[in-house]
Amino acid sequence: MDYFLELFLGGLTRGSIYALIALGYTMVYGIIELINFAHGEIYMIGAFTGLIVAGLLTMYGFPGVSILAIAVVCAVIWAAAYGYTIEKVAYKPLRGAQRLSPLISAIGMSIFLQNYVMLAQTSDFLPFPELIPHFGFMESMGSIMSSSELVIVLATISVCVALTLFIKFTKLGKAMRATAQNRKMAMLVGINVDMVISATFVIGSSLAAVGGVLIASHIGQINYYIGFIAGIKAFTAAVLGGIGSIPGAMLGALVLGLTEAFATGYVSSDYEDVFAFMLLVLILIFRPSGIMGKEKAQKV
């Protein structure tokens, strides 16, 4: 039973990180029907920003928890700036073009950012300090869940709740939903659609950055390539849940995280990806629009 619980909680942690990244994919897709392939790189840049800031603060002798808080805030701001700029530079000029063009631009942006970070930093793995503190009350649970896992899960839950409330009740949240449902009409009621698109990129990037810092601290090392595999997994989670749907991305991430954890625990860690992608194939066969996605009539 303990083993099952350990796997379950491990899966929950994985799922949390996937969710933080998947939300960015699904929100951007919901608004402009683009798979932002550079989104994984935003997560990676968030982690690197966290590393740099944490290094500086440690040097100046800041206390432990404040380092985590400041590193997360800095990573969020910096990643949001990247997300905003990427949209303006790589996607906005292509808004009227065929659908394939921004997609290619996204792939190009992804490759560019990976190589830029590799050249600016290093291609080696860098150790990432343990920013998340060990809580005394978690000692007794040590065998099934660590403090950092607890923090990751709780942080993700609060972020998801906050995002859901934001989308449901705020003016900008409503504008985002309206723009996703019908961009032309959104313009006609006076919504500044360019602003809404920018806001979507900023919010998605911020969430990814939170995930980047937390998971880097949990695993303990990063390099320029971590965004790729995390991005692919989070994208899978978004498709699994129904791309374009926010609750779908959360659920898809959870399902994917748990599947991987149980596959690793009961079969073999070699089969982790096999099960993850097998799940994706099955969903795409039996429910092509994803778990929570709506069947949409093809626009003509």
Binding site: K171, K174, A175, R177, A178, Q181, N182, K184, M185, A186, L188, V189, G190, I191
Partner: peptide, 29 residues
Amino acid sequence: VAQGICQVPEGRLIFPELTVQENLDMGAF
């Protein structure tokens, strides 16, 4: 739109997943 021009477009373009009330709220955006 801010200057007082408003259009009811061809095909109506209702926001399909917003409630009637929310659609009206969007009109007053």
